[in-house]
Design a protein around this nucleic acid. Structure first.
Lengths: 194, 194, 194, 194
DNA sequence: GATGAATGAGGCTTCATTCAT
DNA sequence: TATGAATGAAGCCTCATTCAT
């Protein structure tokens, strides 16, 4: 009920989980970060796994929602693609904590049902992109390829590069990065197709 | 000296680490899997982190070596790219244990020097690909792009798709997957360039 | 807060540490002796070394406090000296556990900061005695000697004899022992000085 | 048989045991210090405890022998006492390693038979001093006191001060220390006896 | 005689979870 | 609702000892 306290906890959890990863994150630390007693975590969430699941899903839902919103407009497909890349990058940087969890913390040792829940969020994002591609394909802008597979590849491609940028941002201009990502994804690596 | 015992341990470690992840892997289990006493692990490696590091680096060196060997021939660049994709996939499937570690287990909580060692292996692979691209670019087959960045993106792209294939291989033909990966990487998503 | 539980733990620790010494004392055994779970030890003290330090310092503070109290009165110096000897003996016997630790367990292998803390308590006792001597010297009852050094010697003298008495008390009357200790310390070994 | 190897091991053991104490000394380290393989320790001594016992007893026998030799002459008792003090100090400083063991490492956790063996050496030294005193007493130089008890006290007195000197030798002249020790032991603390 | 790789019992410590208040 | 003291299972690691060579 006290939605504020729940939010405080989830924010603290996001911070700690992303800094330490699931297994290294300590309930103690999350409680301290949230400014509540450890018991309170258990009063609001049934255990560590469930707190983790809530953190990830609620966080990701918010992010996906933002990407969707930013892509609502009715632009030509190429612009859509560029915008997706830009949004993905800026949100990755903004919520790098959460992103790292979703894309790197899928190791086992987490309750299976929790893992599945997280996988579901991942898939929601992939399907959202697949949908984007499908729309483009239906209008003829896109090759005739399996859009789900393409989306999987794109997410890996973007994720790896965003992560690389995060670690090396001093050596790399953001717009340049976006240009490169767009160039490869739209027309590939080869010098000229023909 | 008994290189065989060392190898047995590293193989067992690769199995367990990839199944459980670093933090959930138990030294007990690795010892049992290797058929040695727990103390033997510590006699040969100074601790869990170091065993992990050895597992990953020695394993990856082997894999990278294999990819390099398979790509030694003097094919046209497009064929080289296709071969890279094919090798990457087959080795990913063959050594999926190790691959999962390197690409997913870079969470914190591992000794920093170990993490750096692993990162070094990752970079070796990326630089190997970047080199491949540079050769292609120098002969004019490739766009004028930052080859390091392209390599980072490609690795993420391939890794995500290989991993997806691993989980869904019943729904997907291997050659089809290779075709799609090649198509996107070589000429992008767009229907026609120009 | 539950000062009672803390006290229970410290008492159990004093017992076990003095019976087994620092390195041979087992946290398991201390917990059992205290009637708490092993985790409770760690909830109240950050580790074995810190528990040891607390046991020693808190125990010794109490003992030193008692000696000081018993010597508060304004007796002539010779009576003071005799009283010191008597108090030292009776407290050594009463808290032989603790005494053995402080005077015999200063071996290495204990955290250095803990060793220093213990050394500090030892010095407090030595300085207390040195002070006693200084007062006597100022009033002319005592030789003109370095009181700190004398105190160090006295403590060793008393400690060794108390310990000897502890092991051989059936062969030795307590008052006789006090007389001997007093005799040597006050007028030395020689038959007649002059 | 190879008395040289045995000696090398015992010297290494003395070094390591005195630096680390019995429980913290590692057989590995002793072997390394001695320049032999670990198995060789077990080939020559049946275990850690026995090696410790041999180290202490053989070492102490040597030291006691030296003190006895230095006191062989037929000096007046007072000179004898002063010489004892001087020898005790110089040997303590020379073999501080061993001394620390004998006087501080009598914690339990060592095999009981080994402890008894060490205690026996301690007593030999105490009895040697008691003998010295008895001779003096018989010639009328000494008070009519229990010489065994006096010896126990003297050993504690000297040991504590030697140890103090060892830690604070920069602040203290050796001859001054000997004077003080002699003064207190011979004529006590009081200003004038009468 | 000598070696050192291998062992495994046993220690310290962590931390998710519980529950009386 | 909220707390935080208490728990104890479980993990990493050490090291004296053994034994095949």
């Amino acid at each position: 009920m006290p939605v504020i306290k729940r939010k405080k906890i989830l924010e603290a959890a996001a911070t700690v989980f992303s800094q330490k990863g699931f297994h290294q994150a300590r309930m103690d630390e999350i409680a301290k970060e949230a400014g509540v007693a450890k018991g309170t975590l258990y009063y609001n969430f049934s255990g560590k796994s469930k707190l983790f699941a809530a953190t990830v899903t609620e966080g990701m839902e918010k992010i996906i929602g933002q990407v969707e919103k930013e892509l609502e407009s009715d632009l030509p497909f190429k612009e859509h693609l560029r915008k997706l890349i830009r949004s993905n990058l800026s949100l990755y940087l903004k919520y790098s904590d959460l992103s790292k969890i979703v894309f790197n913390e899928l190791t086992s040792g987490i309750d299976n049902d929790v893992l599945e829940e997280i996988e579901k969020v991942r898939l929601r994002y992939i399907d959202f992109i697949a949908d984007l591609l499908r729309q483009g394909r239906e209008r003829g802008y896109l090759k005739e390829i399996d859009t789900r597979l393409a989306a999987v590849g794109i997410v890996g491609f973007l994720d790896n590069l965003c992560n690389y940028y995060l670690k090396n941002h001093e050596m790399l201009d953001q717009e340049t990065l976006i240009d490169i990502m767009f160039s490869i994804l739209s027309s590939g690596l080869l010098a000229h197709e023909g």
